[in-house]
Design a protein around this nucleic acid. Structure first.
Lengths: 280, 280
DNA sequence: CTGTTAGCGCGTTCAT
DNA sequence: ATGAACGCGCTAACAG
């Protein structure tokens, strides 16, 4: 069923070493032999077994990016950027969805380590997973995305969430709003905590009491949760209701918008909503 | 650097066959030896090399789903469903983004074939790619998602787009709308063609001329394109402007909504917009 | 129940 | 420029 280099070699009347050479160092083979071997590969339907190559070479060419939720456009946008870059090195990217579950995250990490992959990028659900440190020790580079970690162990790239939250809320304050909703995911996520802190900083800088930040907590970064948050928000008596909302996540903002549209809340007359990076 | 079964065997005072057995058929090894071997693995930091295992067994356990755009929530929702199912068989899923590029799609297919993966799911950008038929011939199961193909070659699962388009537009007609926008992606995608056909069917069934379906074509299924479409839509003189819009894709609908919100077009007073499956 | 051994398909010396 | 032979780490078949 499966065609090997040996069979190709026999068909082309050369040795396996030569076949391997036309595969990996074509310039080291004479033109005539090269085309003869290539024809043999084509007629036999030869498909290189990269498993065998990897075993020989010691590692696979695969790069993986583990995220908590592939439905979150932030992650897929980051993934597109990663692909663009590593594509220039002819490396393929594979996306893994841990679904916010530390045990699934660990399963993927284990799997990837056993596969001897070329590298792993991860936006960790469990930033203190022991495997996160084990991989680099075993020679597998790890890049932590959207989360800061111990720089001695990993490279990492992250957003200044405090500043982001501060800018967003300062903008709303400038526009004259005095009661602002903060719609944020579970406080267990550091990004949410940081953006909230930024929001508070903005209030403080404007001499507005922190109580004017009306916090609505959600359990996840999904549109469904956003709709629920909007429901709670619009349930607040008009005089106490925030006039603007800052959402810690695009999908939350989308859900808020969906709820407003379907229940007749005017945007932006009744509620000011700034859509962030959901721009693709 | 890398620990092998042989070293584990030596450390535990057993043979490699036994080590392999505790890995793959633990019940066939006596309890004492089993724990002794497991301890040796732990202290040595043994990580099974699944590349070698795959070479021996003939195929990898990896399942991949190739989509045209991981930023399209439809695909990631499908991916979640796939994961849920294959997870019950202890198989990991890897997402591949072809970015709508047939050549990248082909690259992934080639790679996966060379990796001898367990199976491939794909929403094809190029449904007639020769590799799509070659994989099954080489023993790699392929499932075509959201696209119908020759049932002799592949299993496939797809949506009845014609009926979907018909239902959506019939609903708007029932609500009293007589001029309806059809905002659809490139007509080269069969899903868009089918939904458009369904929309026309609904008009025909209601004895409304096809010219009352105002078609706005986009080049992709993105929010950006949706915003552009909305701009064109709101540029139509009020008397001729559609009073409702049917978007062939959620991201387009989102873009339309974004444009309306940012330019003060009332939803649904000025324009009725139904948000579809964007529900997570 | 445990040990021994023969490849899985390929890349890479070292000869020629 | 080409060929022969070895081994990557592991599983499976068989022998004990």
């Amino acid at each position: 069923m499966t065609v090997t280099v040996r069979e190709v070699a026999a068909a082309a009347g050369v040795s396996v070493g030569t076949v391997s050479n036309v595969l990996n160092r074509p310039e080291a083979v004479s033109t005539g032999v090269r085309t003869r071997v290539r024809e043999a590969m084509a007629t036999l339907g030869f498909v290189p077994n990269s498993t065998a190559r990897q075993l020989r070479v010691g590692r696979s060419q695969m790069v993986a990016y583990i995220v908590a939720d592939t439905a979150n456009p932030f992650y897929t946008d980051v993934a597109k950027g990663i692909e663009e870059e590593i594509g220039t090195h002819d490396l393929p990217l594979f996306l893994c969805d841990s679904n916010g579950d530390p045990s699934r995250e660990q399963t993927y990490l284990t799997l990837l380590e056993q596969q001897r992959v070329r590298g792993v990028l991860i936006t960790p659900t469990n930033p203190r997973a022991p495997l996160l440190e084990e991989l680099p020790r075993h020679g597998i580079p790890v890049v932590v995305v959207d989360h800061t970690t111990d720089p001695r162990m990993h490279c990492s790239v992250a957003v200044d969430d405090v500043r982001g939250g501060q800018l967003a809320v300062a903008h709303l304050l400038d526009a004259g709003h005095e009661r602002i909703a903060f719609i944020g995911g579970p406080p267990s996520t550091s990004q949410v905590r940081a953006r909230r802190q930024g929001a508070l900083n903005a209030l403080h800088a404007a001499n507005i009491p922190a109580s004017h930040l009306i916090e609505i907590e959600t359990t996840a970064h999904t549109a469904t949760e956003g709709r629920g948050a909007a429901e709670r928000l619009t349930g607040i008596p008009p005089t106490a209701r925030p006039t603007a909302a800052f959402c810690a996540n695009d999908l939350l903002a989308l859900g808020v918008l969906q709820h407003c549209v379907s229940t007749g809340v005017r945007v932006p007359d009744d509620l000011v909503l700034h859509l962030g990076t959901l721009t693709r």
